[in-house]
């Protein structure tokens, strides 16, 4: 027990948790926007892969790091456009389209990587985002190193959460978007286009997911390799539910999940880790996710029109 306690009060542990949470926050916010508008975007896993690849490739090709983030966003938005076209105006099954997008985006990334770098055996590196210590704030004990000594992309993730929250709850656009996910007929009755709102949400949300993917190559690691997204997209789908479709809560549960992830890595290095197989520790965050889902998802208010295609004129 003391081992756990020591981990929990160390600044490096929380710094790691925040770092691990950052890509999850981007992608969860992206998914949240899509679902608030009524579209379940199962393309998330693949869109994170394409974001990780496109962002890294752009920087490797000579672009600035922020340029890479921009390229990642656009690549994600492009796949979002495809996802949106198939599910919104065409009204196809959101599950099937999403899984298809994930397969397509993932294999496109791997294929393009092999095409661009056919000879490479060990993944080449780029110069990733460096930690950016915020003056004064980073000197606060425990909190400082954990929160205010991160890369700019992590700060952007939290800034993004605030922005999404403001737009969704403080602007007419956000209201219209949420209404599109609750009762599209009510939106259409006001002369607004459900199709435009949902398409916009899916395209922008997919862009954010891709930035989440790009965090992995541009901030957390310095190179792109296969399987690096490793199910993070699927976790974000669950995080949207734990977060009850609210950006603030979503950030909170993303950090919580990341903390468990960081904890299990450290637990593997304690004496307990010598006895228990490491796979058990790897399982830990997911087991806790399922438990959290059972407890929290019951009370959540699911967007009423989530996964319901809207056809104008149909009742």
């Amino acid at each position: 027990m003391t081992a756990i306690w020591e981990i929990l009060i160390s600044a490096s542990f929380w710094a790691a948790a925040i770092r691990i949470a950052s890509p999850l926050i981007f992608a969860t916010l992206g998914e949240l926007i899509c679902e608030r508008a009524g579209v379940l975007n199962l393309g998330i896993e693949g869109i994170m892969v394409i974001g990780a690849f496109a962002g890294w490739m752009a920087v490797y090709g000579g672009m600035s790091l922020w340029g890479g983030v921009g390229v990642a966003f656009l690549a994600g938005a492009a796949f979002g456009l495809l996802q949106g076209l198939l599910t919104v105006p065409f009204g196809l099954s959101q599950h099937v389209v999403g899984l298809g997008i994930t397969l397509l985006a993932t294999s496109t990334s791997y294929y393009a990587y092999r095409l661009a770098l056919p000879e490479v055996t060990s993944p080449p590196k780029i110069e990733p985002f460096q930690n950016w210590e915020i003056p004064f704030l980073s000197e606060i004990p425990l909190l400082g190193p954990a929160l205010f000594s991160q890369t700019p992309l992590t700060y952007a993730a939290f800034g993004c959460a605030i922005a999404v929250s403001v737009v969704l709850w403080r602007t007419p656009l956000g209201l219209a978007l949420r209404a599109a996910g609750e009762n599209p007929a009510a939106v259409e009755a006001q002369g607004l286009s459900v199709t435009a709102l949902r398409m916009g949400a899916v395209i922008f949300g997919s862009g954010l997911m891709a930035v989440g993917g790009a965090f992995l190559t541009l901030s957390a690691f310095s190179s792109f390799f296969f399987e690096m997204v490793n199910g993070r997209g699927w976790i974000c789908i669950a995080l949207v539910v734990f977060g009850a479709w609210r950006p603030g809560k979503a950030v909170l549960v993303a950090v919580l999940f990341a903390a468990f992830d960081a904890l299990q890595i450290r637990l593997q290095q304690t004496p307990v880790g010598a006895v228990v197989p490491y796979q058990v520790f790897l399982m830990l965050p997911y087991v806790l996710s399922i438990l959290a889902l059972i407890v929290m998802a019951r009370r959540a208010e699911v967007p009423a029109a989530l996964m319901v295609p809207y056809n104008k004129g149909e009742r």
Binding site: T171, P172, L173, L175, A176, V187, A189, G191, L192
Partner: peptide
């Protein structure tokens, strides 16, 4: 309020 104000305001 839905639909009564310009979206980007």
């Amino acid at each position: 309020r839905l639909g009564t104000e310009p979206l980007l305001s």
